[in-house]
Amino acid sequence: MKSPLAALTIATTLALPSLAMAGPVTLSTEMNSYGGDGAYLVLYVTDAEGAYIGTLWMSGGKSKYYSHLSDWTRASGGNLQEINGITGASVGAGATLNVTLELADALFEAGYELHIDSSVEDMRDVPSEIVVPLTVEGAGQAVTGSRYIKSFTYDR
């Protein structure tokens, strides 16, 4: 899933750091067999203080359920413009979501954190199930989620 628009979104919202350098990053999210319907996932970036920077990917097509991704809604204000062009289908139990996008080098080693909020119908919502700092060393290291996400990895 290569999304040039994702890069564009990030680029416009991340105007602060130098954008001279950017490279492809693959975000890989593997789901547990949690025994439910497809999960809504949103991948977004905040700064060290938790202030919202931008959204990388939204899995789940119906915007009326986005309020269940409560940290993202709170951080982004639930603005649908933020995810314009970077949405896909919800991710089934046991499936893996792979998203590749252009991410500015300046986002790494600068205190930024990548969050994943998850939500499954008739099951609990897990805001910020994954919170992982974006570092050079962290690339390729799997992180375990608390409920639905078996592992998350970003590869540069």
């Binding site: 119906k62 915007s63 009326k64 359920y65 986005y66 309020s67 809604t73 709170r74 204000g77 639930g78």
Partner: peptide
């Protein structure tokens, strides 16, 4: 309502 042809008011919760 699922296809949001008829509004179901679900996305109109209060602002944080």
């Amino acid at each position: 309502a699922t296809f949001e042809v008829i509004p179901d008011g679900m996305s109109q919760g209060p602002v944080f």
